[in-house]
Design a protein around this nucleic acid. Structure first.
Lengths: 356, 356
DNA sequence: ATCCTGCATGTAATCGATTACAAGATAGAA
DNA sequence: TTCTATCTTGTAATCGATTACATGCAGGAT
C-alpha cells in the first residue's frame, strides 16, 4: 500500500508549497484569524497536498505541554471503572486532549506501580482513581504533580489536598442498611473493602452508623474482610456458612463481592433472598442480570467521570499558585438505591414466601 | 509541600552541576560504558541532586520515536479485554515502552473512533484488538501505520495483511459443540456475535461445522442475533422462550451473552442446565462464580496479550521494507474447554437429575 | 506630500536531548 | 623522542513547531 515515505512532511514542506514562511503556517493552524483569507486558503491547500500532520513532540517541546492527561486506575480488570473512564474520555476528547489510561495494579512486590509517562512531564494533568497509591509516589519531587494538576475521583487519599469527585459513601451505606432495616432485618453483616482504603472505611462507618442510630450494632463476627474481588465475596460466604449465629442480611462494599458471596451461598443451597438478603454497591451492569438481580447502591459512574474531567480542565487553566490557595474543592454526587431481587424480609417473619 | 519550581531541571543543569558537557550527560544515560567511571559517578550524583528527569518530548523529537505503543480496544467496558491488556503491559513495561490504551467504542455517529495520538506520529507501534475499525482509518495516508508497525490480537481485519495473535475460534467452537453433542444434545442453538466481526463468523461456522460432521444442522430459528452484550443474551432468551421448537442447548459466542441468556431464562423459571444447557466463550472471571457456573471455552488472555506484545516488539525492530515482505505471521494459541455446571444431558434422556 | 495606524507576514531564537565529528589526553610501540 | 592507537570529552548541528519582535505595506488624517 502507501509508499514508504522517507520522512513525514514537516511545517517547512507546507510553507514551501504554500509559498509562505513556517511562522505563517503555524499561525494558520493556531490562530487562523490573524492570517489573511487568501494565505489561509493557500496554506490549507498545501497541508492537504502534502498530507502534513503536526509533530506533537516538537509542539510539546516548544509549548512545554503534552496535550494529554493520564488516568490512574487501580485495577482495569474491575468493570466498575470502565464507565468512569468513558465519561472522562468524552469530556477530554471534546477539549482536544488525549487520555492515557494506566493500570496501577500492584506488581509482584506489592507496590502499586506508577507509570513512567506520568512521572515524567508527559501529561498535563492526572486523574487518580486509586486511593492506595503511596503518597510519595504522587508527590515525588520531579514527578508530574508539580507541573500537572491532579484530581481524585471515586477514591482519594485524604492526606493529599487535591480536588475530589465522589459520592457520599457514608450516606449511601446508611441508605443501604436502612433499606434492610425497613425490611425487618436486625442482624446485619458487612463485607468490607480492602483495609487502608477510604471507600472501605466510609462504607463500613456508614453501615455502623445506620445500625447505631436505631440502637443496634453489628457483631464483629458479621464483619467479613474483603478486597473488592469476586473471590473475596466467596470467602465471606464460607465464613457466613460456617458460623452459627448468622446475620440475616449482608451489605457488601461492592457488587463484585456481593455477587461472589451470593454465588458461593447458592452453591451451598442457601437461598438469596429468602435465607439471607444481600445489598451491593456500584450497580455494575451484571448486577441487574444476575439471578437474583442484585439490590445495590447505584453510583453515577459516567457523571462522576465527566465531573472529574471538567474539574481537571478547570485546574489546568488555573495558575499554579492559585491551585494551592484555599481548600481543595469537593464534589459529592447523589446516589440511588436500586431495589431488586436480592433483598427480602428476614426468614421467619416475612410477609411473603419466606421459609421457616 | 514541594516548592513550585519555575522550571524543571534540564540536561544543562545537570551538566553544569557535574562540571561536564550536556553530551557527556546524555552519554552517561544512554551508553554508560563509553564514559569514564569518575565522570559517570559525578553525573549520577548531579542527576540525583537536581532531580533531573529526561524530557521525553525533546528526546522523541530528536530520536524520531515516542517510546510508547497504543492498544486499540473496541470496548473497555467489556471485562474480557482487561487480562489481555495486562499481558501486553507486562511485556511492554519490561521493554521500557509505555502503553496507551484507547477505547475505539463507536461514537454517536456509529463510527469507531481512532484517537488522534495514534494517527499522529505519537506511537511507535499499535496493537489492534478491534476487528471493526474501518480499513481507511488504519491505513490512512499520513496515519501512523506507515511509520509504526501494527499487529492484531484476538480480533483482526482479514483484508489488512498484518500479524495476528489469536485462538482458533473455529476449532474452539467445534469443541464446545462437540461437548454438547457428547452429552446427547441434538438440537443446538447459537447466540451470535455482532455481524461483520471475524469472531462472530468463525464461531458460527465452527458450530455449524461440528453439527454437520455428525449429520445434524442448526435450525435457522435457533440462531439468535447478538452483539457480545449481556443485554443481547437476555434478548436471545426471550426468543428461546417464545418459540415452540426450542434447542436443548445453546452455545453463545461470548460469556456475557451466555450469562445474560441464563439470567433471563432463570427469571422465567427455566432451569439451566436441566431445561437447557449453555456454553459460553472467553471464561470471564464471573463465569465460574455465576450460578450455575458457566461451562465455557477458556481463552488464554494474558498469554495472548504477551504474545501480541512480543510480536509487536519484533516488528518494531525490523526494517520497514522487511515488514511488508512475505505473508504476515499468525500465532494461534490453544484453548481449553472449562466444563462446569451449565451443561448437562438434554431433558428427558439424562442420566442424572434431569426433570421430565 | 508626510506621518501615523494597523494589519499581514517574515526572521530568528527557542524548547531539551542526541550524536557526528573534532580534539585532547594517555599509553604503548618503534 | 616521536608517532600512533585508544579512550574520553567537548562543540555544535539537528529534530519541528512556536512566537517575540521586526518589517513592510495600504489607507486615512492632516
Amino acid at each position: 500500500m502507501g509508499e514508504i515515505t522517507s520522512r513525514a512532511p514537516s511545517i517547512r514542506d507546507v510553507a514551501q508549497v504554500a509559498g509562505v514562511s513556517t511562522a505563517t503556517v503555524s499561525r494558520t493552524l493556531s490562530t487562523p484569524d490573524v492570517v489573511s483569507k487568501s494565505t489561509r486558503e493557500a496554506v490549507f491547500a498545501a497541508i492537504e497536498e502534502t498530507g502534513y500532520r503536526v509533530n506533537l513532540a516538537a509542539r510539546n517541546l516548544r509549548k512545554r505541554e503534552t496535550g494529554a492527561i493520564a488516568v490512574l486506575v487501580p485495577n482495569l480488570a474491575n468493570p466498575f471503572f470502565s464507565r468512569i473512564l468513558s465519561g472522562i474520555a468524552e469530556v477530554m476528547m471534546e477539549a482536544g486532549l488525549n487520555v492515557l489510561i494506566a493500570d496501577t495494579k500492584p506488581t509482584a512486590d506489592g507496590e502499586h506501580s506508577f507509570p513512567e509517562y506520568v512521572r515524567q512531564n508527559h501529561v498535563d494533568g492526572i486523574i487518580v482513581l486509586d486511593g492506595k497509591l503511596r503518597h510519595e509516589k504522587l508527590l515525588d519531587r520531579g514527578s508530574a504533580d508539580i507541573r500537572a494538576p491532579m484530581v481524585f475521583a471515586c477514591e482519594w487519599i485524604a492526606s493529599i489536598g487535591r480536588p475530589v469527585v465522589t459520592v457520599d459513601n457514608q450516606e449511601a451505606s446508611v441508605r443501604a442498611v436502612q433499606h434492610l432495616l425497613k425490611l425487618g432485618h436486625r442482624k446485619i453483616g458487612h463485607i468490607c473493602g480492602p483495609p487502608d482504603n477510604v471507600l472501605s472505611s466510609s462504607r463500613l462507618e456508614g453501615a455502623h452508623g445506620a445500625m447505631q442510630s436505631v440502637g443496634l450494632r453489628m457483631k464483629p463476627d458479621w464483619i467479613y474482610p474483603g478486597d473488592f474481588s469476586l473471590q473475596s465475596g466467596a470467602e465471606a460466604a464460607k465464613l457466613w456458612f460456617a458460623s452459627t449465629d448468622r446475620p440475616t442480611a449482608v451489605f457488601a462494599a461492592c457488587d463484585e463481592m456481593a455477587l461472589g458471596f451470593i454465588g458461593a451461598l447458592m452453591r451451598r443451597e442457601v437461598n438469596v433472598p429468602n435465607d439471607v438478603s444481600v445489598v451491593g454497591f456500584d450497580d455494575l451492569e451484571m448486577a441487574a442480570h444476575f439471578v437474583p438481580a442484585l439490590t445495590t447502591v447505584r453510583q453515577p459512574r459516567a457523571t462522576m467521570g465527566r465531573a472529574a474531567a471538567r474539574m481537571l480542565l478547570e485546574r489546568m487553566r488555573m495558575r499554579p499558585e492559585d491551585r494551592v490557595a484555599g481548600p481543595a474543592p469537593r464534589i459529592i454526587l447523589p446516589v440511588k438505591l436500586a431495589e431488586r431481587e436480592s433483598t427480602a424480609p428476614p426468614p421467619g417473619r416475612g410477609e411473603e414466601e419466606s421459609k421457616p
